[in-house]
Nucleic acid binder design. Sequence first.
DNA 1: CAAAAATATTTTAGGCTTAAAATAATTTTG
DNA 2: CAAAATTATTTTAAGCCTAAAATATTTTTG
Lengths: 178, 178
Amino acid sequence: METPSSSLILDRETKASERPGDHKDELRLWLRLLTCSTLIETEIRNRLREEFKTTLPRFDLMAQLDKTVVGMTVGEVSQRLMVSNGNVTAVVAGLIVDGLVDKRAAPQDRRVQILTLTAQGRKVFRAMAERHEEWIAELFAGLEQADRGQLFRLLGQTKTSLHRAIAGRAEEAAKGDA
Amino acid sequence: METPSSSLILDRETKASERPGDHKDELRLWLRLLTCSTLIETEIRNRLREEFKTTLPRFDLMAQLDKTVVGMTVGEVSQRLMVSNGNVTAVVAGLIVDGLVDKRAAPQDRRVQILTLTAQGRKVFRAMAERHEEWIAELFAGLEQADRGQLFRLLGQTKTSLHRAIAGRAEEAAKGDA
DNA sequence: CAAAAATATTTTAGGCTTAAAATAATTTTG
DNA sequence: CAAAATTATTTTAAGCCTAAAATATTTTTG
């Protein structure tokens, strides 16, 4: 329990954001983060369509496959892209039709499907990736390098905070189930 | 062509990010921003479904309408949410069926449709908004308040950078058209 | 070893999203 | 003022995305 005087001090000296039960600052932070993310995503989507007649989900999927020579399973790709398995299945289907991706069952475990870029897929992706990197640099060009570094670090802490909060809640749910 | 000595100095003294034509740092920054955004969005989506049996697009749309008493046009909502007009039309259709939103043509300009929350819609939204605010605060709880402030400022600069880059490119395109 | 459990993926059903074309209404212009 | 241009929205067609159920395969267990 707080004494009346201590809460008086709180009322006088704290910012609006510190009012008990008020979380408007965090909300504004989230909305600003979302705005940045949406602006970038929409712009990249538009440029991929205009310059390469492709979509962001396809690009993202190919980007994962470009990181490996031995290929990647459906589950691995879905985890990395933070999308559902079914979604990977669907996007891959389109890429296979276009001859950019190859899919085959793993010989030692036939449940597993191994995805790889075809030679053409790798060539096409590399060309897009180069432009993509330029676009991103252009979009962030208005920030000083030091600020970009600072932002990168803060987003790292944010990621940690998010993972902790999400894992914490998953535990609660598991406890409830048991 | 560079002299061997100048490129030696570059190799020795500059960070990887400063190699000419290399923009890996900006790319990593973008991917980290996207990760944070996706983690939050997915978590909020899940909680809205579990706790209120609704979706994020519906929640976001209602959040816009909650800001006004006189209502908002389809175009206004679509601009604020950064989604297409057609998308607003579709999501609104669902909300109307559920009795949460009302739509009527403006009397002075019958092209314009004015959207408002119904009394029930406002009540339902307010309950969700309170929980939503708590969730967001929880997700950012691992960040010091000072860091949240710093992050907010940096994202503000990022927004400015993005708007400038996007507007700049739109001008180029317009020039090309003319 | 066979039944049960676990794992990996696909399918299904339904909602979101977009760009582009179509519709409807208003404003501008010759 | 009527045709043309503009503005606001809706429709359409196609792709993305998810959760949950179904399928196929492998591993565990009694």
